[in-house]
Simulated scan of single mutants.
Amino acid sequence: MKQRVVVVRRMDEDHLARLRQLFHVNYFDTLGRDNQQDYIRAMRSAHGLIGGKLVINREILDEAPHLKVISTISVGYDNLPLDELTRRGILLCNTPDVLTETTADTGFALIMSTARRVVELADLVKLGNWVGHIDKPLYGRDVHGKVLGIIGMGRIGAAVARRGALGFGMRVLYSNSSPKPALEKELGALRCDMDELLAQSDFVCITVPLTAETHHMIGAAAFLKMKPSSILINIARGKVVDEAALIAALNEGQLGGAGLDVFEEEPVSAESPLLQMPNVVALPHIGSATHETRAAMAKLAVENLILALQGKSPRNAVNEQVLLAK
C-alpha cells in the first residue's frame, strides 16, 4: 500500500509527478481558511509532509498520528517545533548548501545597493529628476577596502565573507560561537567579540539563525556601538533585529543605512517607516529566489522525503537522533 504525502505550496509538475509515482499525494498549492479543514483531514492519514513556509503546531501534530517525516523547502526551521517533532519521533529534513551562494549574492547585492544608493538614484532617473551633475549630497560610499563584519560565520556568512575579501579587498571580522581557522587562513578573517565587530565594521552582515538567544540580539545597545556611517545588512531572520530600535537609530543618524531582505513581520507593512527612508533598501525575502536555486531546493526536499519514507537516511536530517533511535 502506498504511503500518503501532503504537499503544501506550489511545486513544479516534475517534482509532483515523481512523488505521485511513489505515494498518494494530497496537494495544496495554497493554504488558508477556506481549505484548512481539508488540510487537517489530509494530515490525519499522512506519512510525510513537504513544502515551503510550513507552519506546524501541536494541534496539527495531534491530528497526524502516522506522520514520519517533514521535509521543508528551506534551510531555516524556526517556524517548526523541533523539540516536539523529535519527542514524537518525526524526522525533520531541510535544504542547506544549495542556497548558500544565492543567498550570499543577495547579501552582497544589499551591500552594494545601500552603499552606492542604487535604488534611490535609479528612482531619481526613472522619475525624470536627473537634471544635472550628481553632486556631493547624492554621493555614495565605497565598498572596496572597507571593513566587513559577519555575525554568524556559517555557510552563508562565509560565502559573503569570500565575496568581500577576495572580490573587494575587504577586511573581514567575524563573531561566531566557534573559531573558523580555515577561513581565517583563506580570507585573513579575524574572530572578535561582538562589541569590537560593531565598533570597527563599515558593513555589518547578519547571517545567524533565529533562536531564543538571537532574538533581538541587534538592538538599541548594538546600534550605539556602530559607526554613524555603518550599514546594517540582514539576510538572516527579521526578528534577530529589534526593528523599532533600528528605525530609531536610522532616524537619529546612528547608522548610515540598512539593507533588509527580512523583517519582523512579513510581508512588511506598507506603513513601516523603513519603507519611507531613502537610505534603506528593502527586499521581499528573496534570498534564495532564483529559478535555479528554488528548483534545486525543491529537488533536494523531495529526495529527502523519499529516502526517509523508504527507511533510508536522507541527505539533510536536522534531528538525526530520530534516525538513530530507529
Rank of each mutant, 00 (worst) to 15 (best):
C205S: 14
C205E: 05
I206Y: 04
I206S: 01
I206G: 01
T207S: 15
T207V: 14
T207N: 14
T207R: 06
T207D: 05
T207Y: 10
V208L: 14
V208M: 14
V208K: 11
V208C: 14
V208R: 10
P209C: 12
P209R: 12
L210N: 08
L210R: 10
L210Y: 13
L210H: 12
T211M: 07
T211W: 08
T211P: 07
A212T: 12
A212V: 11
A212H: 09
A212Y: 01
E213F: 01
E213A: 15
E213Y: 03
E213H: 11
T214G: 00
T214C: 02
H215V: 04
H215S: 04
H215W: 13
H216T: 08
H216K: 14
H216I: 03
M217R: 06
M217Q: 13
I218V: 15
I218A: 02
G219S: 05
G219V: 05
G219F: 02
A220F: 04
A220T: 14
A221D: 15
A221M: 07
A221Q: 14
A221W: 02
A222N: 05
F223S: 12
F223R: 08
F223G: 11
L224P: 00
L224V: 11
K225D: 10
K225W: 11
K225N: 09
M226F: 12
M226G: 06
M226R: 05
K227A: 13
K227C: 13
K227F: 13
K227I: 13
P228S: 10
P228F: 08
P228L: 04
P228M: 03
P228N: 12
P228A: 08
P228I: 07
S229N: 05
S229E: 14
S229K: 05
S230Q: 06
S230T: 11
S230E: 07
I231L: 01
I231G: 00
I231S: 01
L232C: 05
L232M: 09
I233S: 00
I233F: 08
I233A: 02
N234T: 09
N234C: 03
N234V: 09
I235C: 10
I235A: 09
A236N: 00
A236W: 00
A236K: 01
A236F: 02
R237H: 06
R237Q: 02
G238A: 10
G238L: 11
G238K: 09
G238V: 11
G238D: 09
G238E: 10
G238I: 12
K239I: 00
K239C: 02
K239A: 14
K239S: 09
K239F: 00
K239L: 11
V240C: 06
V241L: 08
V241W: 02
D242R: 08
E243L: 04
E243D: 04
E243Q: 15
A244W: 00
A244I: 04
A245R: 06
A245W: 09
A245C: 05
L246W: 03
L246Q: 03
I247G: 02
I247R: 11
I247M: 06
I247N: 08
A248S: 15
A249N: 02
A249T: 03
A249S: 07
L250T: 06
N251Q: 15
N251W: 01
N251T: 13
N251E: 15
N251P: 00
N251I: 01
E252I: 04
